[in-house]
Nucleic acid binder design. Structure first.
Length: 269
DNA sequence: GCGTGATGTTGAA
DNA sequence: TCAACCTCACGCC
């Protein structure tokens, strides 16, 4: 259940473990078996993330992964395969083993097809080549709420529900403010916050957004770490007290996803 | 044990 | 706007 930071972290781990070396590739479940057999023993040349998409490259052949909501790519101990019925992909050099279950996408594509996927994505705050102006061009022309725009991968790649809720809170922006009413300065603030926060997510493997001033160490309150592993202001804290103003955190469904915000710290307009 | 929701996206209505 | 998809951990008996 990953946002972009998880995918970038996985890409770095895969590269460190396997890049430049031959690997065993298999698909115990069978759904990727033919492609896996063709790659088995090939040299893994690179692993790269763009937004929530992960590309594992074997020279001109590319495994395109997207974990979706429930997919998992994780390192496991070498040894007998557990639950092969759901094991879509297994990559190993004998010492290090990574397994993929429940992905939304696991396909073998060409470099040109990889480039086409990337071309459909907006700038990724985790990539040095990202141009926030491209995102702003799309944001300020849209009447959709900023909370929806932040989740749109054609606008900003890699941002998910936690980061969108948290950066809106940290900027004091009401989630339903239309893109057309956002100032360029506010967009720059949101973007800079993503650029600041997401690398920390890659580094730590969890999303922490609470500033020093509201940290448990400073305030003496007990830490409240979400199941995803991080300390946050609003995400999945509906009904709890706002860490800044003390009022209850609100939640509602917005385009099928739970949106969390503080009505007091993020007033309309 | 069972039901549900979850850091996501797609495609149909 | 809604259902479908893929898996699994958690809460509640």
């Amino acid at each position: 259940m990953p946002e972009g930071h998880v995918i970038h972290r996985l890409a770095a781990e895969l590269g460190a473990a396997f890049a430049g070396r031959p690997v065993r590739v298999s698909s115990p479940q069978g759904r990727f078996a033919a492609a896996a057999a063709g790659l088995d023993g090939a040299k893994l040349t690179a692993a790269e993330a763009y937004g929530k998409h992960l590309f594992i490259e074997f020279d001109a052949r590319v495994i395109h992964l997207h974990l979706g909501l429930i997919g998992k790519l994780r390192w496991v101990a070498p040894g007998p395969v557990l639950n092969p019925a759901t094991l879509r992909l297994l990559i190993s050099d004998g010492r290090q083993v990574v397994e993929l279950r429940g992905p939304q996408t696991c396909e073998l594509i060409t470099v040109a097809e990889r480039d086409a996927v990337v071309a459909g994505l907006g700038p990724d705050p985790l990539r040095a080549d990202a141009d926030p102006q491209l995102a702003w061009q799309r944001v300020h022309r849209s009447s959709r709420p900023i909370a929806a725009l932040l989740m749109d991968q054609r606008i900003a790649a890699g941002v998910g529900n936690i980061y969108r809720c948290e950066v809106l809170f940290r900027a004091g922006v009401h989630p339903e403010l239309p893109g057309t009413e956002l100032t360029e300065g506010t967009w720059a603030l949101l973007w800079r916050d993503l650029v600041e926060l997401m690398p920390l997510g890659v580094r730590d493997g969890r999303i922490d957004t609470v500033r020093e001033a509201e940290s448990p160490e400073r305030t003496g309150r007990p830490p409240r770490v979400d199941r995803h592993g991080g300390e946050v202001y609003v995400y999945r804290r509906a009904g709890d007290d706002c860490l800044v103003c003390g009022r209850g955190i609100s939640v509602r469904q917005l385009s099928g996803r739970s949106l969390y915000w503080c009505e007091n710290c993020q007033p309309p307009r």
